[in-house]
């Protein structure tokens, strides 16, 4: 049975005068298996963040959206999110940020400390545990964000363009790191990006979204072997997928 089921989901935003509503996502259908890595690509404004927020329980939706068979009615400990930026608490150290979710769950102190240390080590920030976010680079901050999400022990890891603000090289390194961690943890992952290569490189399946109205246009299975390597990106199979996806996205921009 799929872990996440999205059936005919539409999401609207009310205008400030509350008279009109804007449909950001229309009639989305998608089923995601446990442990699957799904990426969502599409031009900006097509509703990627909106759909992810609905799964996170942050925005109301019409239709059916279930996780392990239970309807999503709000945020829950079965899900954790990594946002693009500015979501670390600036007054907490790296360690303090990573423990945040566990503190909210009122776990025992010792458990919290050990688990936080474990995930700080996993993202390679041991030496920076006592640093404040303001003292870290963008890439390091996103490592902290990922560690914080994983430490909360969710079944589903939601990521909204987590590497969007990073330079190309750091981005590629972070992608590899993320896969390494995901292979170790085997969480279900949903990853929003507007970078086609990133979408293919990470995914078991790529969800292609389109604009006007915001909708799911297609879902493409990526049959490249795990584990993925940077060299794979030069292989014909990868380049084929890239061409196909680019053509898809170009339709929207025309």
């Amino acid at each position: 049975m799929p872990q996440i089921q999205i059936e005919d989901v539409s999401i609207s935003y009310g205008s400030p005068d509350a008279k009109t509503t804007f449909k950001a996502v229309v009639g989305a259908n998608l089923a995601i298996e446990p442990g699957e890595f799904v990426t969502i690509v599409g031009p900006s404004g097509c509703g990627k963040s909106t759909l992810l927020s609905a799964i996170a329980g942050l925005v109301p939706y019409d239709g059916r959206l279930t996780i392990n068979g239970a309807a999503v009615t709000g945020p829950g400990p079965d899900r954790a999110i990594v946002f693009q930026d500015a979501s670390l608490l600036p007054w907490r150290t790296v360690h303090g940020n990573v423990r945040f979710g566990l503190e909210m769950q009122r776990k025992p102190r010792k458990f919290i400390r050990e688990r936080a240390e474990h995930f700080i080590e996993m993202v390679g920030l041991n030496a920076f545990a006592r640093y404040y976010p303001g003292q870290l680079s963008g890439g390091m901050r996103q490592r902290v964000n990922i560690a914080r999400a994983l430490a909360a022990d969710p079944q589903v890891l939601l990521m909204d363009e987590p590497f969007g603000a990073l330079d190309a090289q750091t981005r590629e390194i972070m992608g590899g790191e993320l896969l390494r961690i995901w292979e170790a943890e085997r969480k279900t992952a949903i990853f929003v990006t507007h970078d086609i290569e990133e979408a293919i490189f990470l995914a078991d399946r790529v969800v292609v979204m389109g604009r006007n109205p915001g909708r799911i246009k297609d879902v493409i299975r990526i049959d490249l072997p795990r584990r993925r390597t940077v060299e794979m990106q030069e292989e014909p199979a990868f380049l084929d997928l890239k061409r196909r996806l680019r053509a898809y996205l170009a339709e929207d921009l025309a």
Binding site: A56, L58, P77, I81, F83, A86, S87
Partner: peptide, 14 residues
């Protein structure tokens, strides 16, 4: 910053 409040919500803060 509303984004920080959202972090609280996401991690299930009472």
């Amino acid at each position: 910053d509303g984004r920080l409040v959202r972090v609280g919500h996401v991690f299930g803060a009472s």
